[in-house]
């Protein structure tokens, strides 16, 4: 099919959506504008800042560098999918406790990147954390508290997603 619009079916944070989207719309814009999931932030829209990081079939990716149509059939997790209702998960609580955010603009991307890093490397070293977040830019915190928060979470129990527990 080649028309300007296409129907896209995706699962986001355990919920199914079906929507008609213009083929040139990025996945990030689709999440924010069509699905109203504005937790995913856009800093640069060319892959450099990491603010738009989400999980695409479990892998951390830049949602500004994908088209919404490419997500047809995919399972996505955005920052809205981390907490259980009002209850923040351990990573989010560690960010709060360590003052790992100031303006909060980079935070959704940092959280999704850190979540993916911890799935891959459950108790990372400081160097592994630094390399893991090297693709995420924060202009406020100086990074040290972010690294502390991730290290602290790594020493605790494994993180799970609310959607995985219910499913």
């Amino acid at each position: 099919m080649t028309t300007a619009n296409r129907t896209v079916k995706v699962t986001v944070n355990g919920k199914e959506y079906e929507s008609s989207v213009e083929v040139r719309k990025t996945l990030a814009d689709f999440l924010r504008d069509e699905l109203d999931l504005t937790g995913t932030h856009l800093g640069c829209e060319h892959g450099v800042c990491g603010a738009c990081t989400i999980l695409f079939n479990g892998d951390a990716v830049r949602s500004c560098l994908m088209l919404a149509v490419q997500a047809d059939g995919a399972d996505l997790t955005t920052v809205e999918g981390l907490a259980r209702g009002e209850d923040l998960n351990a990573l989010q609580l560690a960010f709060q406790e360590n003052h790992a955010l100031q303006c909060g603009f980079c935070t959704p991307g940092m959280l999704m990147t850190a979540y993916a890093l911890l799935q891959d490397t459950p108790n990372p070293t400081e160097d592994q954390v630094k390399e893991g977040i090297s693709g995420n830019i924060c202009r406020c915190t100086g990074y040290a508290p972010i690294i502390q928060a991730i290290l602290q979470t790594g020493r605790g129990p494994a993180l799970t997603l609310p959607t995985n527990e219910e499913g």
Binding site: G47, G50, T53, F56, D59, A60, V61, R62, L65, M66, T113, A116, L117, E131, G132, S134, G135, N136
Partner: peptide, 12 residues
């Protein structure tokens, strides 16, 4: 490989 961009970029 690890010198190419960041892991989120290498995932795609």
């Amino acid at each position: 490989m690890p010198s190419i961009a960041h892991f989120q970029i290498r995932n795609r």
